[in-house]
């Protein structure tokens, strides 16, 4: 009778935990910024799987734990010991084998997602002009849409090349075909983009949360980095790798446009003479070095220490004169 009740309780709890896990896995999509790249969709699916399994493990462990803490307490004058159970070989084998199988599965699934994203490291990419699409992936019956989007974009033969330069503390984008420079990153939608990342001074991180990918820029190295935007809109590019004093202000807008709008923007920018763009770091540095009314020096409670001076504002064809304006996620 006791045993039956225990099995019933456990089954009911297991069902509840399963429901909660599915619910959390669904919820996880809402924790992210907009899903603006094909790679991002793959990542969100993977994250949802991890969230579901993670919830299952967490509740599966914490439930019995809390049950025990509530119901297995010593009564006030009970100073005796509990039964001396020192272990259970089968239980221990099970709770070694299941986590082992689980993490190996998660590693495999992560590997598959990684493969589908076709993210490749710098070594393989240096002289490649067409990304290699993993052949075996074609045969899979459950090919996901984002993967096809990546493949279609990659095979359209016209991968958009953009050179990215980071310095303390500015981003400059160069479109080599039209020889246009900009401090705002404009991208055509549904096209595979290949960035060539360079840093002029320290490590920076090329991170657009809406695209879900982060890659360091390393001085003296050219790093190729590819992704596929699939949703028009304005997003934010952030420097993710701590790069010194004005690191937090090293941001810019990313504008994903239809191919037509994108071409118009390029053509328009090509006609403009280069001029200095707005640069938050240079602006703030100018204020701290000139004391006077309204300067940052008077506003902050504690004065700062010496800093590396920011590079002068970049002189580019398309030069926004204001702070980044991308809307909140």
């Amino acid at each position: 009778m006791m045993k039956l009740r225990a099995i019933l309780t456990m089954s009911v709890y297991a069902i509840l935990v399963t429901f909660a896990s599915f619910w959390m896995a669904k919820q996880s999509y809402s924790w992210f910024p907009p899903e603006a790249s094909a790679e991002g969709k793959l990542l969100d699916d993977l994250f949802s799987l991890f969230t579901g399994l993670g919830t299952f493990i967490y509740l599966g462990v914490i439930g019995p734990f809390l049950y025990s803490l509530i119901f297995h307490r010593a009564s006030k004058y009970d100073l005796s010991d509990a039964p001396p159970i020192e272990g259970n070989t089968w239980l221990e084998i099970i709770w070694t084998a299941i986590p082992l199988a689980l993490v190996l599965t998660l590693a495999f699934v992560s590997y598959r997602t990684y493969e589908k994203m076709s993210i490749r490291g710098p070594m393989e990419l240096v002289h490649l002009h067409l990304p290699q699409v993993v052949e075996s992936a074609y045969a899979e019956p459950f090919d996901s849409t984002p993967q096809q989007e990546i493949q279609n974009a990659a095979q359209s033969a016209s991968v958009e090349q953009i050179d990215v330069t980071a310095r303390q503390w500015a981003w400059v984008f160069h479109y080599p075909e039209q020889d246009v420079t900009s401090t705002e990153l404009h991208l055509p939608v549904d096209r595979r983009i290949r960035f060539t990342l360079r840093s002029e001074d320290v490590l920076h991180g090329f991170y657009i949360p809406a695209f879900r990918l982060d890659q360091y820029l390393v001085p003296n190295q050219e790093i190729d980095f590819e992704l596929t935007p699939v949703k028009t809109g304005t997003y934010r590019l952030r420097d993710s790798m701590y790069s010194g004093t004005y690191f937090a202000a090293n941001q810019t807008d990313v504008v994903v446009q239809t191919p037509d709008e994108y071409q118009r923007w390029l053509a328009d920018a090509a006609t403009q003479t280069p001029s200095p763009a707005f640069n938050q770091a240079a602006y703030e540095y100018g204020q701290t070095s000139e004391p006077g009314a309204g300067s940052t020096k008077d506003k902050v409670a504690v004065r700062g220490w010496a800093t590396i001076p920011p590079a002068p504002p970049p002189v580019v064809n398309y030069a926004p004169k204001h702070e980044p304006v991308s809307p909140p996620a």
Binding site: L42, L46, F50, Y111, D214
Partner: peptide, 10 residues
């Protein structure tokens, strides 16, 4: 997991 880390890494 590499893909998840690449989003939340820093």
């Amino acid at each position: 997991s590499v893909p998840i880390d690449l989003h939340v890494h820093n």
